[in-house]
Design a binder for these strands. Sequence first.
DNA 1: TAGATTGTTAATCGATTAACAATC
DNA 2: TAGATTGTTAATCGATTAACAATC
Lengths: 222, 222
Amino acid sequence: MKRVKVSNNVIRRLPRYLRKLDELSESGVDKISSRQLAELLGLTSSQVRQDFNCFGEFGQQGYGYNVASLREQIAGILGMDRGFTAILVGVGNIGRALMENFCFSDWGVNLTAAFDIKPALIGTEYRGVRIYGMDELERYLAEHTVDVAVLTVPKTVAVSVTETLTNRGIDAIWNFTNVELTEPNSKTLVENIHFSDSLLSLSYFVAERRDEAAAKSAREEK
Amino acid sequence: MKRVKVSNNVIRRLPRYLRKLDELSESGVDKISSRQLAELLGLTSSQVRQDFNCFGEFGQQGYGYNVASLREQIAGILGMDRGFTAILVGVGNIGRALMENFCFSDWGVNLTAAFDIKPALIGTEYRGVRIYGMDELERYLAEHTVDVAVLTVPKTVAVSVTETLTNRGIDAIWNFTNVELTEPNSKTLVENIHFSDSLLSLSYFVAERRDEAAAKSAREEK
DNA sequence: TAGATTGTTAATCGATTAACAATC
DNA sequence: TAGATTGTTAATCGATTAACAATC
């Protein structure tokens, strides 16, 4: 597989392609053109072809793309077939919601353990994943290969837990805390789920729309 | 306030500025230059100034920006002072996690009601927010102003619930279901929290880094 | 005043779109 | 073969960065 330097925008579109291809598969569609796929996702066909051509030639001239094989190619690009492992740190409300509802294995990731300080949780299991005490975290990391740490601890301990994780060789953090972990000097990959950022963006767009509507009705009154 | 057409990238940075300014406020910092702020967020000072200048002149030459007043300006731009209201539809694991842990009011949004089909939940409250039956949703929307619907229903009913919401005049949806609601024809604002997309992007970066490391050690062996 | 930093214009860079030859 | 659609190069568009006059 080609692995040229690929822009962030392209990478963010890959999971969307994957999701749509899965949907198409389920509806029994087995071929698709760049034009059709673009339309389904609100993109242009040029963009779709350019995106794929960062990684190789997945289509066939005059025909289009085979849905199943394109899906597999993208899954491979995203690393879904690499058996990455993850641990979850902080079994609060959001941590528990992820453990109970988010199917890590659907995305090729193996959730192998969780950690919390609450004694009542330690030793219990959610969906087959055992919860260990926070004091067992360092030893666990020393003894197991862990690719991703899911960070769902309270905001107050986010930075100190992150230090423990990075000191112990974790190089990817899926950050659910509302803290800016992306420090320029750190070598750790950080992917943020910032609920508040997302809500505020939506709030911006709503405000903008209301302002436009108000401006329009003001014009009409004149 | 100026409201020129602002690029999506700019809007996505606004909540990050806000968060960092709040942090600075808490640490007692009351002025900051575009250069300092840029460094804290991994941006350039030009970009910071360009971003702000989409909306007005918030700084003072030779001095920089006042943290508190810049914070208020950005809060205003994001619509935090407009008293937007929200309802939450689907009190499953993720819905409950949001109701219990996510402080909507911190971001200027008023969560006024929640809806679910489960009889055991109907009539109960989480954090002062009452849960109604799904059959009461349409009437509620007819009688109340609701700016945002938080969609946390199971994937299977996502599309039908969305139709109900949009038919009843909701024009912004904060979508937590793993379904692509962004249909090109619809006028509804949709902001997605796609956990899987986020995890897959991280997975991509981890895979890329592993490949680079492997390539490097292969070169060294030769 | 001198130094600092903004606001803003111009230059650069990168991403998207258009176009079309290659080819199934 | 004729029609369709890819892969890929060239053109366009937009976002970021650099530069600097204005000014606190």
